[in-house]
């Protein structure tokens, strides 16, 4: 467990060189959120996406320094190396979410102070749902991208990821098209009720499952790979 801590520390210290960029991103995020009242709702999504993507950049740091070979010479193993990456990335997604939840009401208060004629109410339930949705989205992207990076490297993995996501979108659109073409009746109200009742637990379980499966796949790929 201590070696996992060491591996996570390496990633954190690597990102420390990002300090200024992170601060600028945070300010940009707030400014973007202030663009309109409807944009405010997207702050958690923007925060999670930015932080999640920054977390993924640690793979590029490893590639530049060719650190994988060196790390494999240390008293650790491939399981701990892969696990540490997932722990770090999941932690970053959660931090992104918390950041979004904290920043959104602050931005709303600032906007209300600037435009007292257009008061926006702070809806914590909506912020929470948007945050969870954002976490689901970035988890899906990263669950696909991390195994791709382990397979093809940080640079190639990014291209492969876009292909995979494009294929996924095509599949979903295709299924939707088929459903309408065949004429299967969809009771939207029923779906809405179902989502209201079980949406949050489904999202949380999906996020956990996606990362778990992604971790298993990544570990399998990394075991076959030679340093």
């Amino acid at each position: 467990m201590k070696t996992i801590k060491g591996l996570i520390k390496k990633d954190i210290f690597n990102l420390a060189s990002y300090k200024m960029s992170l601060l600028i991103l945070l300010i940009c995020m707030c400014v973007m959120g202030m663009a309109s009242s409807s944009m405010v709702n997207y702050i958690p999504i923007i925060a999670i996406t930015m932080v999640g993507m920054i977390a993924l950049s640690t793979f590029s740091y490893d590639d530049i320094s060719k650190s994988n070979t060196y790390i494999l010479s240390l008293p650790t193993n491939k399981k701990e190396i892969v696990l540490s990456k997932y722990i770090f990335i999941i932690a970053m997604i959660i931090i992104g979410g918390i950041l979004g939840v904290i920043i959104t009401p602050i931005v709303i208060q600032i906007m209300n102070a600037i435009h007292p004629e257009e008061i926006i109410a702070v809806d914590f339930h909506a912020i929470f749902i948007t945050t969870l949705g954002g976490m689901f989205g970035i988890s899906l992207v990263e669950a696909i991208q991390i195994p791709s990076i382990y397979k093809w490297g940080a640079e190639k993995g990014r291209i492969q990821m876009f292909i995979l996501i494009f294929a996924l979108i095509l599949l979903i659109v295709g299924i939707g098209y088929l459903v309408t073409k065949i004429g299967i009746g969809i009771n939207m109200e029923m779906i809405q009720n179902f989502l209201d009742k079980f949406g949050i637990p489904i999202l949380i379980i999906s996020i956990i499952m996606m990362h778990y499966i992604s971790y298993k796949v990544s570990y399998k790929i990394y075991c076959k790979k030679e340093g």
């Binding site: 390496k10 210290f13 690597n14 740091y61 530049i64 320094s65 060719k66 060196y70 010479s73």
Partner: peptide
């Protein structure tokens, strides 16, 4: 271990 072209990270 010392490996010529590999180390923990260049950014540390």
């Amino acid at each position: 271990v010392v490996i010529d072209d590999s180390f923990l990270s260049e950014y540390l």
